[in-house]
Simulated scan of single mutants.
Amino acid sequence: MNNTILEVYNLQFKRGNREILNIDHFALHERETIALIGPNGAGKSTLLQVMALLLKPTRGTVEFRGVPATPRNALAIRRRMAVVFQEPLLLNTTVYENVATGLKLRGVPRQEIKKRVGRWLELLGIAHLAGRRSHQLSGGEAQRVSLARAFALEPDVLFLDEPFSALDFPTRLSLLNELDRLLKDTGIAAIFVTHDFSEVPYLTDRVAVLKNGRLVKTGTFEEIFKVKPRRENYITSLYRVFESDAAG
């Protein structure tokens, strides 16, 4: 498709003799959010890190806007991406400096940094925390800082690796709703890894099911779970996905 932003072909990743991933094809399109789900050990986080060019595949190609990633252009491509992990991984400095860090590393002019940091602190409701140090933040506040740092980079693709799993339900729900709004407003494409399937209908256009390192099913929420979003019984339907012949 001509609106494909990220694509992988014939992807394999091994650790020693153990095959972690074996994926024929996967694609992310402009303005799309894909939920990557699967059982523990399915390879979800590994696939995310390979697509984010943080891990080198054993075999295969990662393409960004139709251009294969190579050692020569990997850094330039990575600068069009941002990653939010389960742990915020904040520096021991102020909230402002944490959000500004990536922009400084990219050589963004000082006034532009000030403008972007201020905007994203405001949009994520943490402008009042700008001068607070990272160790003084709650879990939800720290993850908001991590999101602000990622969005301030104005990436083409945002990778989210179970970013809310350590948060309580009200905080998680609030951040999911805000993230949904921000992705729609900015048009940033995203891949969202989660083990909490209650998060899936809040954000995603498509769902990709990973099992034993292989993509076994992709489709809309309703196609995968066989129920309409937000109905109470959709979580239990997940197990049918893994146990069905199609997922075998």
Rank of each mutant, 00 (worst) to 15 (best):
V207D: 04
Q136E: 13
F151A: 03
K211T: 07
T218P: 08
Y202K: 14
L158R: 01
L175W: 05
T194V: 07
A100N: 15
G125M: 03
P163F: 08
L176Q: 11
G118V: 13
K104E: 07
G131Q: 08
G187W: 09
R144M: 06
A127I: 10
L105Q: 00
E141P: 14
D196H: 12
T218W: 05
G187F: 10
Y96Q: 03
S134R: 02
D196V: 09
T186H: 03
G118R: 14
R144D: 03
W120H: 08
L176P: 01
F159W: 08
E97P: 02
L160H: 11
A189S: 15
V108G: 00
R181D: 12
R132A: 10
K104T: 09
S146D: 03
R133H: 08
T101R: 02
L147E: 06
L203M: 14
I191S: 07
N177C: 14
L176C: 12
E178K: 15
K104C: 07
R206L: 04
H135F: 05
R206I: 01
H128F: 14
G131T: 04
E141T: 13
V209W: 05
F164R: 05
T194S: 13
E222Y: 02
P170K: 06
G213S: 11
S174D: 15
F159R: 02
G102S: 09
L105W: 00
L173G: 12
R181I: 09
G125E: 04
L183I: 04
E199P: 01
R132D: 03
E222T: 15
E97N: 15
V193H: 06
E178W: 04
L175S: 10
V117Q: 05
Q136M: 11
E141S: 15
L121R: 07
I126A: 03
L121C: 13
K114P: 02
V99D: 05
D196A: 13
Y96L: 10
E112F: 05
E199F: 02
L123C: 14
G213M: 10
G125H: 01
A142Y: 00
S198I: 06
L123H: 15
A166N: 11
L215D: 09
G219H: 01
R106T: 01
Q143D: 10
S174R: 13
T171G: 08
F221S: 02
L129W: 04
L210Q: 12
V145W: 06
D168K: 06
E141M: 13
F151D: 03
R181N: 09
V117S: 08
K104N: 05
L176I: 12
V157H: 00
T186Q: 03
P109C: 03
A190T: 05
L215P: 09
P201G: 09
L183Y: 06
L158N: 00
V216W: 06
N212W: 12
W120K: 08
A150M: 02
T218K: 11
A100L: 15
R110K: 15
R110I: 07
I224W: 00
R214W: 02
G139L: 04
E141Y: 14
L137G: 12
E199N: 04
L210C: 14
V200G: 02
T171V: 08
